[in-house]
Design a protein around this nucleic acid. Structure first.
Length: 998
DNA sequence: GAGCACTGC
């Protein structure tokens, strides 16, 4: 017989080869399982129950371990931790009639205990003990909490100890019963809520109810989590039996209700999106924990404590890992509420410990002093310095939230706002949505109590509309300001302005090193506060000579790293979907050629339009011996973090949008990245350890040819929306608005012209009633004008759907490379009668609605579910806003002309007419354009068309095209079009005045 | 008959 430790090593090795990873708890579990197994088959059975797959490897492993591990009779003398399923069942107070144990084990257990004579009596005693105990419950709980690691080493020969354990077990029965009651109460409440949702139109109360639902779901999930946690030890079956009829699945369904289709639509409206975001948050949270590698359990603790069902579910690895820290002491005996409190406590302590380890934490005093002395402070801190999580907490602790004032912190991305808020609420030990909350589109997780509020920058911008002086805030922190999103740039100007007349308002701007000086200069020489980061070293390599074909260079480099470098995943930055697909194929082909000579290379593409189920692939852990290579677009630069990346390949390009105000044309073209981007990309390899970055350009290129930072978005975009927002904030003199980097005057003027043409501004540039209505809708001005105009044509229902579909971007139709024909056919079904792309989108939306928002239907029609759900969310939001601007919800589904006219009211500047050669010419700012081949009108070529957008890619393309009657233009926009603009080509075949020879 | 970087409200 082997010693226990030898045995453990042996099992661990085995597990390692079978699963690719190993954990002490798995080993222990397997040994324990084997010890009470009666045959190798029963070992297999139990392994399968714990999540192993039933393969021949599992079977032979079971055979081996059964031979090696002492089992059956010999187990009597072993002082091992047994799965507690037997004992638990015995002392359940709730339900007694489910004793189905094997007599042999029963006997063994009896022998093991010190007072085996009369079990009934003992049970009775336990009950009495329990009653006494429960009276003393609080006291007991306190004791448990003050002794998180009780010095109660197991000694099975000790009578006192057994009685003690008995008490615990009995208490469990009580606790479980109580839990059941709570859960039932919650379930009933949820049912009530659901009824309310069905009957009432969503109003103001919706927010709070949404919030309430969220809370409930969180509570349920917490209980679920306790169960999940126990599952490894096979307790749940016992629990389920006891609950008689309430099984895991059913209970899980309560918690996950909001993620499901159908019923609770308003709550679960963006279910898939949420799922994906949850996953992202999961990553965000995990990476928080993993900054500190000393304690591996923490990250899971953190995940466990919050609503991370999506992340934890179905992953055996994490389920087991979470228990790791309770591995070898009696904590396992403490269950349910107590376990929960205990965990909350230990998690809290660990969080605090982690907090103290952050560079920011040490600079607390210094920082608070700076903030006290200056109104505006620029903060320079790298990732991992803890600025985002710590600063609002410091300020809160220092009393900046007194008198109900809030601390606001903006983030450029939704996911960031949510995950940071979750983290901070953890650290402060409060419930998310109470003192600490977040506010993002479609989801407001704040309450009257909220004093620390994380939000997206766009959300703060919307808040300006209702509270122009932001009186409820005492501190505003603009985080990740160096990213220079459109919203942050506008915020700068606004915030700088209100800081002048609100001396009590503190302003914090966080930025990267490169831009700090610039920020300081803009904010009246504000002091710069520097926090060191915690990134690991990254070695940067350049190519000796410029590479002609960066894609090929990337492929070669990837293989080179794969063959020569130690383990660690590779991240390659490419410009778009097409490149990613190409590289994917070439890599597959080449590695196949190499056969088994090299280790396995797992290729994971990732880009935003990739269906989410395929995106999830990049987060799967890399199996032992293999290497993962992630082919990503810019999405991996800031938006998501992949653990385990050690090598980054940076070809130095990305696709960037630019806007030509003169022609009103947007273009999306491959451009060299900036130094700031290059540094950011390199940093992606150093998150969990030292990394390497291979730049596929020369050092000279880097130093002399790359711009310092990316041109801010505000300088390369259509400003119509920005101008409308600023106008509605009462800022009239836009040309002198204090932009940090002013946009081209031409673009501003163009935007003003457009808004004037749409009727949003009057001749002196003031906002009109229509303009105010338009500003309410979070969509492009032309689209919001169409919505406002739909009132006149009595078809707001239809226009809303179209607007929502257009707002989702171009990601509705999915076109897999291998099924292009099918996808195109499916798409053609919505274009029957050549109704045009706008009506086709309406058809898609309505048909989807008729199928009760079926996911299956989307798959069948090659439509992206994620985009559809997003469209539904947007539509819901727009519908609510409709009420606010006093537009009636009207439907007129058969009158397509009315719908098109409403669209034309917004898009009349986007008209084009056919020329002889099959190309089109835009009516205003004449230029030659082509219908995008993805359009349903690409073959039809109507004489006059209305388009949604004009983009330059390989040619000038117009996308989302519908047929138009030229007389509409004069009817709808007489101030913009004159009869002569349109009549020529109606009466004559050849357009006049184009100056072209035939 | 060509192609859709990434966010955000």
């Amino acid at each position: 017989m082997e010693s226990e430790s030898n045995l453990k090593t042996w099992v661990s090795d085995k597990v390692m080869t079978l699963l690719g990873y190993s954990q002490p708890i798995i080993v222990q579990h397997i040994i324990a399982v084997t010890k009470q197994a009666t045959s190798p088959a029963s070992v297999v059975e139990m392994l399968v129950e714990s999540g192993w797959s039933s393969t021949t490897e599992t079977a032979s492993f079971a055979q081996e371990i059964f031979a090696k591990v002492p089992h059956k009779a010999s187990v009597l003398d072993q002082n091992i931790k047994k799965p507690r399923v037997f004992r638990r069942k015995r002392y359940d107070l709730v339900d007694d009639d489910e004793e189905k144990q094997e007599p042999e084990q029963e006997e063994r257990r009896v022998k093991r205990r010190t007072c085996p004579e009369d079990e009934e009596e003992e049970d009775q005693r336990a009950r009495e003990q329990l009653e006494r105990n429960l009276k003393d419950k609080d006291k007991a709980a306190t004791r448990k909490l003050t002794e998180p690691n009780p010095n109660r080493r197991r000694s099975s020969r000790n009578a006192d100890h057994d009685i003690e354990r008995l008490r615990t077990l009995s208490r469990e029965g009580y606790v479980k019963k109580r839990e059941k009651q709570i859960l039932e109460g919650i379930r009933a409440k949820i049912e009530d809520e659901k009824k309310l949702f069905k009957h009432e139109k969503l109003t103001q109360a919706e927010k709070s109810r949404n919030k309430y639902m969220e809370d409930i779901c969180n509570v349920v999930k917490k209980y679920e989590a306790v169960d999940d946690d126990v599952e490894v030890y096979r307790i749940p079956e016992a629990y389920d039996d006891m609950e008689s009829g309430v099984n895991q699945k059913k209970r899980y369904s309560v918690a996950s209700q909001r993620y499901k289709d159908g019923e609770v639509k308003k709550v679960g409206a963006h279910a898939e999106q949420v799922g994906w975001e949850d996953h992202q948050i999961g990553k965000a949270r995990v990476s928080f924990g993993s900054k500190n590698k000393r304690r591996e359990g923490d990250e899971y603790e953190f995940v466990f404590e919050t609503d991370m069902v999506e992340f934890v579910k179905g992953s055996m690895g994490s389920g087991i890992k979470r228990d790791d820290q309770f591995d070898d002491d009696d904590d396992m005996e403490i269950k349910s509420n107590q376990l929960f409190e205990l965990r909350a406590k230990t998690a809290m302590e660990k969080l605090q410990e982690e907090r103290r380890a952050l560079p920011m934490y040490k600079m607390r005093q210094e920082f608070l002093k700076d903030v006290k002395e200056h109104q505006i402070v620029i903060i320079v801190g790298q990732t991992g310095s803890g600025k985002t999580t710590q600063i609002p907490q410091f300020l809160h602790e220092a009393g900046y939230t007194k008198g109900g004032k809030k601390i606001g912190c903006t983030q450029p991305r939704r996911v960031a706002a949510m995950s940071v808020a979750a983290r901070v609420s953890q650290e402060m030990g409060v419930k998310l949505g109470h003192e600490v909350g977040y506010s993002i589109r479609f989801e407001d997780c704040t309450s009257e109590k909220t004093v620390v509020k994380y939000m997206t920058d766009g959300m703060l911008l919307r808040e300006f509309l209702v509270e122009p002086d932001l009186a409820s805030y005492s501190v505003l922190m603009v985080d990740e300001a160096h990213e220079r999103t459109l919203s942050t740039d506008i915020l700068f100007g606004l915030v700088k302005d209100i800081a002048r007349f609100r001396p009590d308002l503190k302003l914090l701007i966080s930025s990267a090193t490169l831009d700090a000086e610039k920020f300081s200069a803009y904010f009246d020489s504000a002091p710069i506060f520097i926090v060191p980061g915690k990134l690991h070293d990254v070695d940067v390599f350049y190519t000796k000579a410029p590479e002609a074909d960066y894609l090929d260079a990337a492929i070669v480099s990837t293989l080179q790293i794969h063959v020569t470098e130690p383990p660690g995943d590779i991240l390659v930055f490419l410009t778009g979907q097409e490149e990613i697909e190409t590289m994917n194929e070439i890599l597959k082909h080449r590695t196949r050629g190499l056969g088994t000579k090299i280790a396995e290379l797992i290729i994971c593409p990732i880009y935003a339009n990739l269906p989410s189920e395929l995106q999830a692939k990049i987060f799967e852990p890399t199996p032992e011996g293999a290497r993962k290579v992630v082919l990503a677009t810019n999405i991996a630069e800031t938006s998501l973090t992949i653990d385990g990346i050690k090598y980054v390949i940076d070809p130095g390009y990305c696709k960037m949008k630019s806007y030509n105000p003169r022609s009103g044309m947007e273009s999306l073209q491959v451009t060299p990245i900036s130094k700031a981007s290059a540094i950011q990309r390199a940093g992606r390899s150093g998150r969990t350890g030292p990394g390497k970055c291979y730049r596929l350009y020369t050092e000279d290129n880097f130093k002399n040819e790359l711009d310092d930072s990316t041109i801010p978005e505000i300088q390369r975009t259509n400003l119509a929306n920005v101008v409308l927002t600023l106008k509605s904030l009462g800022i009239n003199d836009l040309l002198h608005f204090d932009f940090m980097d002013p946009p081209p005057a031409e673009a501003l003027i163009k935007a003003l012209e457009l808004l004037f043409a749409l009727g949003a501004l009057n001749s002196v540039g003031e906002l009109t009633k229509i303009g105010r209505q338009m500003a309410e809708f979070p969509v492009d001005p032309m689209l919001s004008k169409a919505i406002v105009a739909s009132d006149k044509y009595k078809c707001s229902e239809e226009v809303l759907s179209i607007a929502a579909m257009l707002s989702t971007g171009n990601s509705i139709f999915h076109r897999p490379k291998d099924k292009q024909v099918y996808a195109d056919n499916a798409k053609q079904n919505f274009h029957i009668g050549n109704v045009g792309d706008h009506i086709a989108l309406l058809n898609v939306y309505n048909t989807w609605k008729e199928t009760n928002y079926s996911t299956q239907w989307c798959y069948e029609n090659y439509i992206q579910v994620r985009s559809m759900k997003r469209a539904r969310d947007i539509r819901d939001q727009l519908e609510r806003l409709l009420e606010r601007v006093e537009i009636e919800l009207t439907s007129n589904p058969v009158d397509l002309e009315a719908i098109k006219k409403a669209i034309t009211s917004g898009y009349f500047p986007h008209s084009a007419r056919l020329e002889k050669n099959g190309a089109y010419r835009t009516v205003k700012n004449p230029q030659t354009v082509h219908i995008h081949p993805s359009s349903g009108m690409a073959q039809v070529l109507p004489r006059w068309v209305l388009y949604h957008e004009l983009v330059l890619t390989t040619k000038e393309y117009i996308r989302q095209v519908s047929e138009l009657k030229p007389e509409w233009l004069v009817e709808i926009a007489p101030h913009y079009y004159q009869l002569k603009d349109v009549e020529d080509s109606v009466s004559k075949k050849i357009p006049r005045g184009e100056g072209r020879a035939p």
